[in-house]
Design a protein around this nucleic acid. Structure first.
Length: 571
DNA sequence: CGATGTTGGCC
DNA sequence: ATTATGG
DNA sequence: CCATAATGGCCAACATCG
């Protein structure tokens, strides 16, 4: 169907891609049917079994793409390309194909909760042209390479026109950025291990190293998983920390003595130094290098064969030893060619807290103590250097954790990370060997002023709540200060929806303004000045603590309290 | 040309 | 990032 | 305990609009 010619490989230079073999002629319909069967069951083992059975049935090496797609994305994590397809492209394409108005799409989207479900409904009964895995693969390649939205829409339309009704639903889900069948990378790893009869650990390790489930599947079947190489310049999966609610929980979860480090409020990054070539990668393996030429310059001085794990933070221009909050770093993110003035105004540092390779040798499997020694040999302790060593301290009890936490907060850090000194680096996993502890937040009592219907499984409830505070003790004007969607149970959301429906004042699609009567207690990590809401403030990581049925609107918090909670200056 | 809309990626 | 949910 | 879904706020890039 699509032309497997020139544009398909045009983007190759940007990010080296791993070959997955010749495109497969295997029917896409079987993949789509498997995805639907996975969606239909909630049993995790059954989902895994379905995927494993399907993967085992593929005899064509080009079928590797099938493994990738089950994780919900059209491309591998190691692949920097995106499709740039959203509702602006999907809705007109669907409307044209189904021969209905755009309004009808919007209406059904609201009722069904996802554009994928709308596609399945509107295109139901279509026979399809017998798409193969290879056809879909080429279509994704072509869409990613298409520069203009019109070109992408034409490609999407051609793809969907060739799809059966059953295929259209999953295709739209993949195109729109999420399969949502209750299956992600971790489950696909299980299925690959089962389908190829290899050890799960080997599959996980290969995935962490390659960032491509397609390659992992192909190698698992070829018996060459162990040949997945660690290479400097190629990002590895990050080891993540598990959240803990209290210092006691941290102390209880780790054997004494354990390690405490600051939790830096920046962006996690992996620094690769290979001769003169320095690269920085994000947690999702995006290439951050272009945004940080200052760190690249500093990295060249470290010596080759190094892979460091750490955090990029903003530092104060007047004193680079002191850290700046996350909002200062934000304008430096995503830049492809940052101006010299920006580099000056917002200086950054890479705070190294782990070493995955030194002298060209992978040391990720060694315990933290040994990795830390290696790190200290390669990174200066200088607290003002652009690439600097993260300090740490030993702790054996909760009291020490509390003390370190207080000190970290006073310095401007988010909190602490606690680590097991004997643990190896668990690439790509969030295990119990690293723990994080953040600040116990203040709460605000607010009133709901507007609500919006949710997506997917929340399509039937008003799950997205906009809330306000009073202007002052003497002025009852309500000023919006944020939105939240998490914290209430499903049952509470259902009950809340009924109440909010009785309070409707104005309705626009799935959105509605309501009489201010529902009082919520909300929490957050931070209050920040923002033009987003009428109050002039917004919340970082807002979540609902509880529905305050006992509290009248006349007693909710005021703008002055919000102002008092807002971070200001360098903190 | 600047403003706006869409998408993607950080936390 | 976060919380709720269910295997 | 683990994996997954659904979603906040900020910001940059890029295409398109006016």
């Amino acid at each position: 169907m699509t032309d497997p010619q020139l544009p398909l490989f045009a983007a190759e230079a940007a990010a080296p891609r791993v070959a997955t073999g010749r495109p497969s002629a295997a029917p896409f319909a079987a993949w789509a049917a498997t995805a639907e069967a996975v969606r239909a069951t909630r049993a995790r083992r059954e989902k895994g079994r379905l995927v494993a059975t399907y993967l085992a049935s593929l005899d064509d090496p080009g079928g590797a793409v099938a493994a990738r797609w089950f994780a919900g994305a059209p491309f591998a994590e190691a692949d920097a390309r995106t499709l740039r397809i959203g509702r602006a492209t999907l809705w007109p394409a669907l409307a044209a194909l189904a021969g209905v108005e755009r309004e009808r799409i919007a209406e059904r989207r609201l009722a069904l909760g996802s554009t994928a479900a709308v596609a399945g409904e509107l295109l139901a009964g279509r026979r399809g042209a017998g798409l193969s895995l290879g056809d879909v693969h080429w279509a994704f390649e072509a869409i990613a390479a298409a520069r203009h939205a019109a070109g992408r829409e034409a490609l999407v339309r051609a793809l969907l026109a060739a799809a059966s009704g059953a295929e259209a639903g999953v295709l739209v889900a993949l195109l729109g950025g999420g399969l949502r069948i209750g299956l992600l990378a971790a489950q696909v790893e299980d299925a690959i291990a089962a389908a190829a009869a290899v050890a799960l650990d080997a599959v996980r390790d290969a995935h962490a190293l390659s960032g491509d489930l397609g390659e992992v599947f192909r190698r698992a079947r070829a018996g060459t998983l162990a040949e997945t190489v660690f290479a400097i310049g190629r990002p590895v999966g990050f080891m993540l920390a598990q959240p803990k609610p209290t210092p006691d929980a941290v102390a209880a979860a780790l054997d004494a003595p354990f390690v405490l480090e600051a939790k830096y409020d920046g962006i996690r990054a992996q620094l690769h130094v290979q001769d003169n070539a320095v690269r920085l990668f994000s947690r999702t393996r995006e290439d951050l290098t272009p945004a940080f030429p200052d760190l690249v310059r500093a990295g060249r001085a470290l010596g080759a064969g190094l892979v460091l794990d750490g955090e990029v933070i903003a530092v104060r221009p007047d004193d680079p030893a002191r850290i700046a909050p996350f909002r200062h770093l934000q304008p430096r993110l995503g830049r492809t060619a940052p101006a010299a003035a920006l580099l000056r105004e917002i200086p950054v540092a890479f705070v190294a807290f782990d070493a995955l390779a030194v002298g060209g040798e992978r040391i990720a499997l060694a315990p933290w103590r040994e990795r830390r020694s290696a790190l200290e040999e390669h990174v200066p302790l200088d607290v003002a250097a652009p690439i600097r060593l993260a300090p740490f301290r030993w702790a054996s009890d909760a009291a020490t954790v509390i003390e370190a936490f207080t000190a970290a907060r006073a310095t401007g850090h988010e909190g602490l990370v606690a680590k097991d000194p004997d643990a190896s680096y668990a690439a790509g996993r969030r295990g119990g060997r690293w723990l994080k502890l953040k600040a116990a937040a203040a709460t605000l009592d607010v009133v709901v002023t507007a609500a919006e219907r949710g997506n997917g499984r929340r399509a039937a409830v008003l799950s997205d709540l906009t809330f306000a505070v009073r202007a002052s003790d003497t002025d009852d004007t309500l000023l919006d200060v944020g939105k939240a969607y998490t914290g209430l149970t499903d049952a509470e959301l259902v009950a809340l929806t009924a109440t909010l429906e009785s309070l409707v004042r104005e309705r626009r699609g799935g959105w509605q303004r309501v009489e201010p009567a529902v009082v919520l207690e909300v929490t957050f990590d931070l209050v920040q000045a923002s033009p987003r809401h009428a109050s002039g403030y917004a919340l970082r990581f807002p979540r609902i603590v509880r529905w305050r049925m006992d509290k009248p609107v006349s007693e909710i918090d005021t703008l002055s309290r919000v102002r008092a909670l807002a971070g200001d200056g360098w903190m």
